[in-house]
Every structure is written in C-alpha cells, then in structure tokens.
Design a protein around this nucleic acid. Structure first.
Lengths: 114, 114
DNA sequence: GCATTATATGCCTTGACACGTATATTCTCT
DNA sequence: AGAGAATATACGTGTCAAGGCATATAATGC
C-alpha cells in the first residue's frame, strides 16, 4: 500500500483526514468525533503517518496528529488531466455532458435504451 | 466497490482513465498501448463502466470507450477541503510547511527523536 | 454458414487488508 | 512505586478483489 490512492480509498481514513483538515487532533478526539474504536483509529493513523499524510507530535501522554498536504497534492496533480472536462466553462461543460449523456426530457422522442 | 476512491485506487484503472482523458479508445487500443492482457482490460472497463467513469458505444465489432467526468468530480470535490493547504500562495505554503515540518539544520541543537 | 476478429465472462487461486478483542507500552500524578 | 489514562501493537479471522487462463459471445466478410 504505497500509492496515495490506495491510502485514501479507505473511508475511515478519509474521515480522519477530513477532520484533520480543520485542525490538529489527538487520537482520543478522533476516536470520539468519528465514533470509531480506538485501535482502529490508531491503526489508520499509523498507515497515514507511514504514508506521509499526517505527522504526530507528543503532548504528554497524548499524541497530536496533523495533516501533511504533500501526498494529497499527488492526487490533485493526477486529477489535473481531467479538469478540462469540467472546469472550462459552464456551457462547455454542458456541451460535453450533452455529448456524453444525451439530453432527456427536452424535445426528444427517442428514449435512451438501457 | 462503490466509492469513486476505491475505483481509482487500482493502477491499471488509473492508466485507462488517463488514456481516455486524451480521446476515446477501443478495447484493443487500450490493450496495446498499456500492454495489458485483453481480459484484464475488459474487466477493468467493466468496473469503470458500472461505476459510471466511462461509457461505451458500439462500432461494428469494437467498442469505443470514453470518459464520463462526473465521478472524478467527486474526488475533486473531496479534495477541495484540503486545497487551502497548498493553493494559497507560495509563501503561505512555506509558512505552512515550516509549521508542519520545522526547519532542520538551522540553529537547532535538539535532534528530533524518532 | 464459416472462419476470423473483437470483446466479454467464468472459474480458481492468491494476497491484502480491515476489524475485533486482548494486551502491551508509555506517560502522569500522587 | 503504583494506579490510571492515552495510545500502540499482536493475533486470529473473514472478505473481497485482482490476475491468469480458458472459453463464450458477437459482429464481420467471404
């Protein structure tokens, strides 16, 4: 499990990352907010840490985890090649959608076959 | 396997999507360009199609596959919450990185413990 | 209809990985 | 030192998906 994509494929990990997007958190906070068993949280944090998505610093017995954005940028970078499909302009998008998914319910007698 | 993230976790599927980003392709083209066994290509295309990432149309015996951007937009949308971490401004990014990853090798006697 | 090309599907094996439960480790405070 | 809180790890188990290989289905042109 090396690739950034595999890491974020797991829903609990995405939830954790989402939480850390707003601020750093201790393991216990994550556990309570996301209502997941503590070992689950720790395990996912380990994966995230080893993959470089987060880092931790010690604060007495608790560990505060915070986001490291680099790996997420990888995903963003990969997505770049597709962005022209929607980011251009609304009407360009619509043209695309029309091509891709022929307009229903508007002057069209033919039903899309399924 | 429902979530967009699981779908794009698979490297071959990402390769296929990348290929389709430039233009639509037949199964055979994908097979040759990506050097993967034909059943593998077909299977991944099936997953992509059922998940709504691509759609196919028939052209005689071949099937042309093309991209449908919607599911990729989901990923883009999820990434939005993190984008402030890097998209702001270079120096803001650097401030962030400094906070996140304290500058080493500069007036720091204490070694970070591992 | 038959051979050929193009694509899809079935079956089987294998390997990851997520989870639960229990337990270990580490730090703090008295 | 001992108790308690916070976090990490170990182990056993079930699930699910990817790959290889063989074969089925579909469309074409003769």
């Amino acid at each position: 499990m090396e690739s950034a994509f595999e890491i974020i494929a797991e829903p609990n990990r995405r939830a954790i990352l989402g939480l850390l997007a707003s601020s750093q958190r201790s393991v216990g906070e994550i556990e309570r907010r996301l209502r997941m068993p503590q070992p689950t949280v720790s395990k996912h944090l380990r994966v995230l840490r080893e993959a470089g998505f987060v880092e931790s610093r010690a604060d007495a017995q608790r560990r505060l985890y915070r986001l490291k954005p680099e790996r997420l940028q990888e995903v963003d970078a990969w997505l770049a090649q597709f962005r022209r499909f929607w980011s251009a302009r609304v009407d360009a998008l619509e043209r695309h959608l029309d091509r891709v998914n022929p307009p229903t319910r508007t002057k069209r007698k033919t039903r899309r076959r399924r």
